[in-house]
Amino acid sequence: MDTNKRFLVGVYDDDDEVMAAVKTVRASGIKIHDVYTPFPVHGLDKAIGHPRTRIPMVAFMFGTLGLITMFVFTLYTMRLDWPMNIGGKDYYALPDFIPPMFEFTVLFTAFGMVFTFFITNGLWWGNKAVIFDLRSTDDKFVMAIDTASNQKSEAEIEKALRETGAIEINVKEIVEEED
């Protein structure tokens, strides 16, 4: 179901300021919808209260899958399906298969992790970006606050944004699919 959501959008022009603002605003009991920045601001995810990402675990699992896939594949092709006598050596000459196993580990890790990253963050070709302020991919740091989900009044939120150094405060209505 589509609903029209009303947001108060605070625009900051410095990464350190928005960082401090997030901490102050959260401490004053206002729930922040999200912060949009033109580049990664270290520690912002922690300040906003996101748990640590589990993407390294995903990467590790895909890597392991790649390793096992190539191990099984070389075992099947070189030992089980069509064993070849090459200079009387072992059919399954493990050291020789380490390079392809390594390459598959890297290949699976990279593609598995990046596509997990795409999917979990709603990135896909054709997806429309939810933009609160067009300058948030240029030089502005944008804090969006969902007014409906907050106990505090709009005036209080606006005051908090202004006190933490927002140079502009705008109202933005976004048609968002309920999740």
Binding site: D34, V35, Y36, T37, P38, F39, P40, V41, L44, D45, I48, H50, T53, F118, N121, G122, L123, W124, W125, G126, N127, K128, A129, V130, I131, F132, S136, T137
Partner: peptide, 11 residues
């Protein structure tokens, strides 16, 4: 791909 630079995506 619909990138908007939100906190979680950057992290």
């Amino acid at each position: 791909m619909g990138w908007n630079g939100n906190t979680k995506t950057w992290a």
